[in-house]
Nucleic acid binder design. Sequence first.
DNA 1: CGGTTGACCAAGT
DNA 2: GACTTGGCCAACC
Length: 107
Amino acid sequence: MSDKKHLTFNQQCYELLKQIPEGKVSTYKALANALGTKAYQAVGNAMNKNPNPYVVPCHRVVQTNGELGGFAYGPKEKIALLKKEGVHIEDNKVVDFKIHFFDGFQP
DNA sequence: CGGTTGACCAAGT
DNA sequence: GACTTGGCCAACC
């Protein structure tokens, strides 16, 4: 058990993403901040290489300004998934973004 | 091991 | 208020 594997920055991002409950969204900055770094872009970069987009709720991550940001499968797919979760999207931006914002990452 | 890339962010013009 | 520039950090070639 004490065998701690060196998870790459990307893997740590995935683990953190899994902590996001349904119907909530977070930002790249919040994730990087939770990891103790300022590599916002590195977080987004990790999502691009996301090997398991259906294991990790990468679609629950948006930009700090409330925009969707991007999605490897197309922004339309991201909107559809979020809408299913209860998060409505309008003009490529999250509706009531602050309300759906989740920053309670557990260590 | 240097340079490029990237689903970003903040400030400046 | 929209566009441009610089900066930050990890992964990839």
